Computed example of a mutant assay.
Amino acid sequence: MPTSDNPTRSGGLVWFDEPAAPRATEQLSRKRIVAAAVELADREPTGEITMRALAARLGVRSPMALYRYVGSKDGLADLMADEVYGLIRVERGNGWRAALGELGRTGWEAVRQHPWFARLAFSRPPLGPHALRMYDSALAELEPLDLSAADRMGFVSTVLGHVLGSGLALLEEQAMRARSGMSSDADLEAAVAPYLERVAAEGGHPHFSRWAADPGRHAPAPQSFERILDWLLDGLATQLADRRP
Rank of each mutant, 00 (worst) to 15 (best):
L160S: 11
I49Q: 06
I228A: 09
L103F: 11
K31I: 12
F16C: 15
S29E: 08
G104Y: 00
Q174R: 15
E197P: 02
P215G: 13
Q223W: 15
G95V: 12
A175H: 09
G104N: 04
E44M: 12
R210T: 06
R133V: 01
R133E: 03
E102L: 09
G128E: 05
G128Y: 09
A241T: 12
S10M: 03
L76W: 02
R112V: 11
V14H: 10
S148A: 08
L103W: 12
R9M: 12
R152T: 08
D17E: 15
V163F: 09
W15R: 11
V192P: 00
P245R: 15
R119I: 05
L40Y: 04
M153L: 14
A191T: 02
R89A: 12
A121K: 01
G47M: 13
D230A: 08
S123H: 04
Q239V: 10
A219W: 05
G11N: 02
A190W: 03
L171I: 04
T238N: 11
S137C: 03
Q27N: 12
V84I: 15
P215R: 13
G71C: 02
A193Q: 14
P125C: 04
L103Q: 02
S4W: 01
L76E: 01
T106A: 11
Q113G: 15
E48K: 14
E48V: 13
D151K: 12
V38Y: 03
D78H: 15
D5R: 13
W116T: 02
R30T: 01
H130E: 15
N94S: 10
E39Q: 11
R52I: 09
S224M: 07
R105F: 06
A65V: 08
S123P: 00
W231G: 07
V14D: 05
Y69A: 10
R105G: 06
L170I: 03
M64W: 14
E26T: 09
Q239Y: 09
V14A: 14
W108T: 05
D136L: 10
Q239K: 09
Q27L: 03
E44D: 10
D214I: 01
S209T: 11
A169C: 06
A118H: 02
F122R: 15
A121L: 05
L139I: 03
E141M: 04
W15I: 01
L170R: 12
L229M: 02
K73Q: 14
S10Y: 01
D214M: 00
F16M: 14
V14K: 08
L188G: 12
A110W: 10
G107M: 11
S72V: 06
